[in-house]
Design a protein around this nucleic acid. Structure first.
Lengths: 205, 205
DNA sequence: TGTACATCAGTGAACGCGCGTTCACTGATGTAC
DNA sequence: TGTACATCAGTGAACGCGCGTTCACTGATGTAC
């Protein structure tokens, strides 16, 4: 049984979770340190026992997000093996699934404006997550004749961009008026067309 | 010569422009009505002669953005005629060019969290902009055999998603570590691969 | 087991700040005669 | 052209608010003997 702290128990993590809930509910703008403290049942000043301040708390939320993100992507990649194609497709689906399932984390990571270079730990874990997708792209691209093979970094950037675009425009309520297609469908078909364009799927399949 | 108002001249527009500058510089979060007023050389209270409040000012900035956006897209589309392909590619490039050239507008439109349904005028102009891309996709898709033709709305959603993703991840400084490729290259090649996947570009071209 | 002491997580009061918004006003501009 | 009046854009003072942050403190928990 995990030992509980002196007073609250595990305030640090409770604050991160409060922050995630609030970020999800009100956007990175609406999130305030005071409200997170209140939601954790604690005075705002208590937050400073665990974090340097507001930004630091958001950064920790993002860090935990990247941690989960990297795991999820890696797991999808492994599970899709040994086919390079199915591994790649699984990571694409995992991206969207992550955004759906952990919206607070996703927002903290990609919409809060905190830089990934704000501290080395954050930079490391985000790079790790990115590398999963890059590796999947790299392996898949070996099936393309070398002379028409795009650089894997470009390949993965395309897929990342489409995934992120689908999330931002169609998996949230706000700006893109809802399309008649589900985000999952859009991403699946979009990546499908893209892979066909790379010659990785037969043209008439 | 445009007539100037009583005191300031054209406060309404000056406020919109101040807002755009601030939104660009500090993000939608950092933007404050008071600062916009100050930058326009006016008391915060004066803003209320022209707008209902802070949100209304952002909405007007977004509206003007959609206005420009629709024009830019339409112009690119027309200029790319009569080839459906070149018209389509031109609108894709225009998307990115718009994001680059009017960052304040772009942020107000897509990142400020204001809903396009907040007022009818905004909904109308944003729909108009969207329709340009949809029409380009529709015409282009006529070159695909009907049985393997995706719905044009899906087609344009894919391209919009990739464009938006490239802008958000690679054309800003923050989250995506800078890729070795320029956003323009990424979008151009990404859409190229996608169109090839649709069979619109010969496989070995 | 019991006592004395050290640690340190969380308190509560206080701070200065800039925010969005309101209000009665002022004074420059426009208009009627 | 000159005067009296109406309009209304912008003023400046004030408001209440919640924010992030600081500080000396308290009191529960852990530890040494």
């Amino acid at each position: 049984m995990p030992k509980r702290g002196y007073h609250h128990g595990n305030l640090r993590q409770a604050l991160v979770e409060a922050a995630l809930t609030l970020i999800e509910a009100k956007g990175p703008t609406g999130f305030t340190l005071s409200e997170a403290a209140k939601q954790a049942g604690v005075t705002p000043a208590a937050v400073y026992r665990h974090f340097d301040g507001r930004e630091d708390l958001i950064a920790e939320a993002a860090r935990q997000g990247y941690e989960i993100f990297a795991d999820v992507m890696q797991y999808a990649y492994d599970k899709g093996q040994p086919s390079a194609m199915s591994a790649f497709e699984a990571t694409g689906r995992a991206y969207l699934a992550f955004a759906r399932r952990y919206p607070g984390h996703y927002i903290a990571m990609f919409e809060s404006g905190i830089s990934v270079n704000r501290n080395p730990e954050l930079a490391a874990i985000s790079a790790k997550a990115r590398r999963v997708l890059e590796r999947a792209a790299e392996e898949l691209s070996q099936h393309i004749p070398p002379e028409k093979r795009p650089p894997p970094a470009m390949f993965s950037a395309h897929v990342w961009a489409m995934s992120h675009g689908v999330v931002e425009l169609f998996a949230r309520n706000s700006p893109g008026t809802q399309s008649p297609f589900s985000p999952e469908d859009l991403l699946e078909t979009g990546i499908g067309v893209y892979l066909r364009g790379l010659g990785l799927i037969p043209p008439d399949n």
